[in-house]
Write a protein that binds this DNA or RNA. Structure first.
Length: 281
DNA sequence: ATTCTCACA
DNA sequence: TGTGAGAA
């Protein structure tokens, strides 16, 4: 016995009523979220149960769930639901970080303008750079940029320079520790993280201002070992590597590059100089 | 006015 | 995660 409200709709009508496209309807069906009835001719028909299901799908979709996640929910697969929710939460938190950073940027920019200060393109670049300071660039990308810079600026000796670097890495002549004490794996060529960590450590120590602390000395030793270990025989090759690498690391136009204060060079040089004078290195 | 598939964002 | 085209 069917209720009198038992109404059936074609794809177009149901789509209109729910503010969907028939295309979307079929995507949901393809993904296993919905199984409309078929007429003998093979045309889809949607009944009350389907409308209800559609409402559920829409709500869940507005919550930001993926179709997969919705499916897991509908099928009551709790284990999958867990991971779905975790993934969704992580995604939302990542979005929030991005937005927070953007807002900070805008607030400081507007403050400057309100104080009658101008805001040049350079200022803006500096702002975004500061906002990105704590972002971790991918060593792989950084390495790719470095190689590109090397080939661009020193096409005739790029291959030789890269061979030197690879050899140094293969020989274990690169620093293999970061300053949180954990091991870094440079065997795959991702030695750039070591430099990033050294730069970061240097900036911390520079702020502390103690050029004779144990931490400063440890850093100086690794910094020194790095330059010695990497140093090719040829001066021109050595200079090419230096120029290309630091140019890459310090390129303000590249959003993925960490920026460091050139003062860091001076600080580390001072530490090394002091250690040499005291015969500690 | 519906079906399906394919390429594309 | 959808969309638009084109054929049936």
């Amino acid at each position: 016995m069917k209720a009198k409200s038992e109404r059936w709709f074609g794809p177009n009508e149901i789509a209109k009523r729910l503010g969907l496209s028939t295309k979307a309807l079929r995507v949901y069906e393809r993904e296993g979220l919905l199984h409309p009835h078929r007429t003998e001719a093979g045309w889809r028909v949607y009944g009350p149960a389907h409308v209800e299901r559609l409402h559920l799908i829409l709500v869940l979709r507005d919550l930001g769930l993926s179709l997969k996640g919705i499916k897991a929910l509908i099928e009551g697969r709790q284990a999958d639901l867990q991971t779905v929710l975790v993934v969704q939460q992580e995604s939302l938190e990542a979005q929030r970080k991005k937005i927070d950073r953007a807002i900070d940027l805008l607030v400081t920019a507007r403050n400057r303008l309100n104080n009658g200060q101008t805001l040049s393109l350079d200022d803006f670049i500096n702002l975004t750079r500061d906002a990105r300071m704590d972002q971790r660039p991918s060593p792989v990308i950084l390495k790719a940029d470095f190689e590109t810079a090397l080939r661009d600026q020193f096409p005739n000796i790029a291959n030789e320079a890269l061979a030197h670097i690879n050899q140094a890495v293969a020989d274990g002549r690169m620093p293999t520790k970061n300053y949180a004490g954990s091991k870094l794996d440079t065997s795959n060529g991702d030695f750039t993280t070591v430099f990033e960590d050294m730069i970061k450590e240097a900036s911390i120590l520079m702020a502390e201002g103690d050029e004779t602390s144990d931490r400063a000395k440890a850093l100086a030793r690794d910094w020194n070992a790095q330059s010695i270990g990497l140093k090719p025989a040829e001066k021109s090759v050595s200079e090419a590597i230096q120029t290309a690498f630091w140019g890459t690391v310090n390129d303000p136009k590249s959003p993925k590059s960490p920026i460091f204060d050139p003062e860091i060079f001076r600080f580390v040089a001072t530490v090394i100089k002091g250690m040499k004078e005291r015969g500690e290195i």
